[in-house]
């Protein structure tokens, strides 16, 4: 470096000034942006990072709202207004203009003010074009702030009940077809033999249900025995009012996947109940107007099977 003569400062003095100015500049930035201050202090361990307890009202009710409705613009990939709402610490830290949550004071909480504005207001959140929060969602956030914006509190009185979101998985036709393949021929033959009596339980299922109740007395023990190729796949059977009797007990014993069985108004007795002893999947059994005694039903009831009927002999 060429020498141009003595300057007004020595290099060490200048660098000291630069260091001082840098620190001052960062200090001003932190003063102007408290979120930056807290973020810095937390990242170097000088300030505890606030965390919400699992199962807390925040974690269960508030965080999912922020995540689904706000974090798209106030999250990891985008920090509008230098505000992130994808963690309890970030929510409490606030954004470029300071804290957005004032514990216990909804009126002073900028976040609540914004989500309460009419959708036509330029400052309303979520912004126009995006779906506004529902009244229940706004109430959840309001109650949480009013209760102290805690990450620990588990229940807050008056909070609207949560809306359960149920996702129904899409069935894969190829998979269903593959599962049904081993019994497809037998199902087809028996459907031809007993029209309208045998069907798959659901579009994506290889399990079967049988409804012989409409055939009434025309459906006999022999008819039930004809279903033996499908016995292990029958999960629901309504044999109410049919002519079946204890002679079908061995056949019913092979239907081990049975979950629901209706035998009301048939000639069965306790002997048939013995045949059902090994049916671990059975959840519901109707034996109204049959010869089955309460005593024979006790083992099933003890297992938690919902039993309807039974005599008191």
């Amino acid at each position: 470096m060429a020498d141009f003569g003595p300057g007004r400062m020595s290099a060490p003095a200048y660098l000291a000034c630069v260091a001082l100015l840098t620190v001052l500049g960062l200090g001003v930035a932190m003063w102007a942006h408290p979120a930056f201050l807290h973020s810095t202090l937390q990242s170097i361990g000088l300030e505890a990072v606030p965390r919400a307890a699992p199962g807390s009202f925040y974690a269960v009710r508030v965080a999912p709202l922020f995540e689904s409705r706000c974090a798209g613009c106030h999250g990891e990939t985008r920090e509008k207004g230098q505000l992130r709402l994808d963690s309890f610490a970030a929510v409490m830290r606030g954004g470029a203009d300071g804290a957005v949550i004032v514990p216990g004071d909804t009126k002073a909480s900028e976040l609540f003010r914004r989500i309460s504005l009419p959708p036509t207001d330029d400052k309303a959140m979520p912004p126009s074009g995006k779906t506004p929060l529902t009244a229940d969602e706004v109430t959840v956030i309001k109650l949480w702030i009013a209760a102290g914006a805690s990450g620990e509190v588990r229940e807050i009185k008056g909070a609207p009940k949560p809306v359960m979101e149920v996702t129904i998985p899409q069935s894969d036709p190829a998979t269903v077809q593959r599962r049904r393949a081993p019994l497809a021929a037998a199902v087809k033959d028996l459907q031809a033999l007993f029209p309208g009596l045998i069907a798959y339980e659901a579009r994506d299922s290889a399990d079967l249900e049988v409804d012989a109740s409409l055939k009434g007395a025309r459906f006999s023990d022999a008819n039930l025995a004809a279903l033996s190729p499908l016995a292990a796949h029958i999960v629901r059977a309504d044999l109410s009012g049919t002519a079946i009797a204890d002679a079908s007990a061995p056949m019913l014993a092979t239907m081990t996947s049975m979950r629901l069985l209706r035998l009301a108004n048939t000639k069965i007795t306790d002997k048939t109940m013995e045949a059902l002893a090994g049916h671990k999947a059975l959840k519901s059994l109707s034996v109204v107007d049959t010869g089955v005694s309460d005593a024979a039903l006790e083992p099933l009831k003890a297992r938690g099977v919902a039993v309807y009927g039974g005599s008191h002999e």
Partner: peptide, 11 residues
């Protein structure tokens, strides 16, 4: 900072 260095230290 570099420009200031030239101005104040390097003249």
């Amino acid at each position: 900072v570099a420009v200031g260095f030239y101005l104040l230290v390097r003249n």
